[in-house]
Amino acid sequence: MRALRPLFFVVMTLGSAAITYSSLVYFDAEELPPFMLEKLPLPHEELWLGALKVHVSAAAFAFPACLLLLSRTLLKRFPKFHRWLGRINGGVTLFALVPSGFYLSVFAKGGALSTAGFMFSGTIVMFAMTRAIAAARAKDLVTHQRFVLHVVAQMAVAVISRAMLFAADFAGLDSDRAYIASLWIPVIGCAAFVELISPRRNHVPLARPLVARV
């Protein structure tokens, strides 16, 4: 598992960068992005596009920040920076990323199943981030780590599901079914995986805080 850690960081960093790069088109005032064209007709196009801009901006900050916050080196050498980055990231996630994601999920491709999938993922992020912040304030680092990993795992869904969508298109699978499967499988899989690898207070001595397992 430890050997997979650098691979996870590299893949997720590249994935996050690729998503951010492909999202630049959303900020072109002259152009309607292809992702939006799929959704037309929308009841409030400008509101939807505004929410999308907030969502991708928040994600472009929050996901790389989460990856940085998992760094043991950063935590050891710059604990104050870790705390401040964590606070900012918590705010961006709870007040920009999740609310905009909830709104966008209402218009998700694939209908109610997709909407439910995005809302479920958003609820995990919101709940886990709140618990992670509360645990950090209570200096319960084991619980903090567990819930932070849940947040990171749900953000990683963005990368995993896009990779699955690409593979599904390559295989010529039905687009709508592939979209729903590429959402639900990583959402549940990532949550289950974190539960599987997360240390519990009963099992891990308190002298070993923040075990870096991803």
Partner: peptide, 12 residues
């Protein structure tokens, strides 16, 4: 579309 990113939730 030739210039469009493939790493997106938009259909390829």
């Amino acid at each position: 579309e030739a210039k469009q990113s493939r790493f997106s939730r938009a259909r390829i």
